[in-house]
């Protein structure tokens, strides 16, 4: 499988699953070419609604469609969706409307467009709502499974997707399950808990570390809410060292969620890798290097963390 953006995999899945289930509708706010609902909209124009650059209304319309028995996917950049937090909070979460929120363009990896277009606080915002699971699939295979899961799941759900291509990391026979993480690489010295954008870099970092005699376990935390407590605690117990890696603000994202859980269940030394401060324009590779999310940066943080 070639590398593919998870937003592109989402667009393909929506088109395919939309053929089988006419409850599926899309709601966009003038970004359908970017969120990749455009193919679905072409094939099913009567089930695709572009309401203009008005995200609050898009989210509210999606809530209403859900209350009328439809399964709406409301799609925009992650920052623009989560930025309409109050509408999500009441019209979707508290109403318990069966809305699938799809936030694309997650993280600094969108690059040149700069901070205002980067989804960097969306997980922190939505994680505070009691009934919205958060799913960030790693690659094409997992995205397609996650979209199918989102349709089966009765209730709101947030799907966080990338603009950039994602190297395949999940075995073709793996199956996405909410609250379950896949171990991509077994190890004993440290656990890398990665999600989304930098997940392939975690695998690459583990290889670099292996050359130095450090055995790093890599788990793919595609289910950010709920976390896979069983896998996390078992791995933390074995390695005694946790490093979380994510393309999201260092505050309140996967790292925050893992820290909250482990501090109560199994306090474990923990290094959080993520985005500090605002993002900025630049090429994605350089941005990941600047924030220590590239393979060398991750490996170097791990060595420092382990004092090796």
């Amino acid at each position: 499988m070639p590398a593919k953006a998870t937003r592109a995999a989402f667009g393909e899945a929506l088109l395919e699953l939309g053929a089988r289930d006419d409850r599926i509708v899309s709601v966009d706010a003038d970004l359908s070419k970017s969120t990749m609902t455009v193919s679905f909209a072409k094939k099913y124009p009567e089930r695709a609604f572009n309401v203009g650059i008005a995200e609050q209304n898009a989210i509210g319309i999606a809530a209403g469609l859900a209350l009328a028995g439809k399964v709406p996917f409301v799609c925009s950049f992650a920052c623009f969706l989560a930025g309409r937090f109050e509408t999500i909070r009441i019209s979707v979460a508290y109403t318990n409307a069966n809305v699938k929120l799809v936030g694309t363009h997650a993280g600094i990896a969108i690059g040149e467009d700069g901070y205002s277009q980067m989804g960097l606080e969306d997980i922190a915002c939505l994680r505070a709502l009691p009934n919205i699971p958060i799913v960030q699939p790693a690659d094409e295979h997992e995205t397609k499974q996650a979209v199918a899961y989102a349709i089966e799941h009765d209730g709101p759900l947030y799907l966080r997707l990338t603009r950039q291509n994602m190297e395949p990391v999940c075995p073709p026979d793996s199956r996405f399950r909410l609250g379950r993480w896949l171990t991509l690489n077994a190890g004993v010295d440290v656990t890398l808990v990665g999600s989304g954008g930098p997940i392939a870099n975690c695998v690459a970092a583990a290889k670099m570390l292996a050359a130095d005699g450090i055995s790093a376990e890599v788990v793919n935390a595609s289910s950010i809410k709920p976390l896979d407590e069983e896998t996390l605690v078992a791995s933390a117990g074995r390695t005694g060292h946790i490093v979380t890696v994510e393309d999201h603000s260092i505050a309140g994202g996967l790292g925050g969620a893992v820290a909250e859980l482990l501090s109560e269940v199994l306090p474990t030394p923990h290094k959080r890798l993520g985005v500090q401060g605002f993002g900025e324009s630049g090429d994605p590779k350089s941005l990941y290097a600047k924030h220590g999310l590239d393979p060398a940066g991750i490996a170097s943080s791990v060595r420092k963390f382990l004092n090796r």
């Binding site: 609604f49 609050q56 209304n57 989210i59 509210g60 319309i61 999606a62 809530a63 209403g64 469609l65 859900a66 209350l67 009328a68 028995g69 439809k70 709406p72 109050e86 509408t87 909070r89 009441i90 019209s91 508290y94 109403t95 409307a97």
Partner: peptide
């Protein structure tokens, strides 16, 4: 629908009617 955070009910109503 949950309402009371003002301004949201018309959008929900549009979605319901459309559905």
């Amino acid at each position: 629908a949950a309402t009371g955070s003002l301004g949201q009910g018309l959008s929900i109503s549009l979605g319901l009617a459309l559905g």
